[in-house]
Amino acid sequence: MDVKSLLVVVVFAACAPAACAPAARAPSVPSVALTGDSGPIDARALVEGAPYTVITFFSAHCPTQAAHDARLVALYERYAARGVRFVAVDSERDASLARDDAERTRRGYPFSIVIDADASLARALGAENATYSVVADARGRVLYAGGIDSDRTHLTATATPYLADALDDLLAGRAPRVAEGKSLGCALQTKR
C-alpha cells in the first residue's frame, strides 16, 4: 500500500461518524441527567414552569465567553423580570461544581451553572461551541438556537442581537425573526 492510500485509510478510519457528521439538533429539550448545586436534575425540569428558558452553553476558558459575560448579565436583568429563566450549562470535560460555582461568582452570573457531564444535552441541542444558546418554551420546544449576538470577542454597538431579538419576538407572540443565529465561540471540549 503506497503512502497516499495509507493516508486515505488512516483519515477515513479515524473519522468516526459521530465526529464527522454534522450535529443534528433535537426539536425539544430532552430528558437527560444534569447535575446542579442541589444534586441531580433532569434537563426537562430546567424549562418547566417558565414561559421561556434560555439555556446557554458555558466554557470557562473561552475568550468569547468572557467577552459576553456582561451581555449575558444584561440580558438576564432585562428579561428575567418578564418571566424568562436563564441557566448556563457546562458540558466540558473539566467541569466541576466547585469550579463552576467559583466562575459564576467571579463573572457575576445571577443564574446557575449546571453540569452536563457526558455532554448529552449539548449533543442533543446541537451545541458545539461556547455561548451557543437555545430558547425553549415551557414544553421544551426549541424556538431559537445559536449565538448571543454577531460579535465574537471584540464587542461593538452594531452587533446583531440574535438572542435578544428572539426573546422580544417570542414575548410579543411572534416567531423569532431569526430562528438560528450564527454562533462564534470556542469549540466545547467535551468528554466525547
Binding site: V11, F12, A14, C15, A16, A19, C20, R93, E128, C186, A187, L188, Q189, T190, K191, R192
Partner: peptide, 11 residues
C-alpha cells in the same frame, strides 16, 4: 478537517 481538535477527548 475531518475531526476538529478538542471536539473529542481521545480522538
Amino acid at each position: 478537517d475531518f475531526v476538529v481538535a478538542g471536539s473529542d477527548r481521545y480522538l
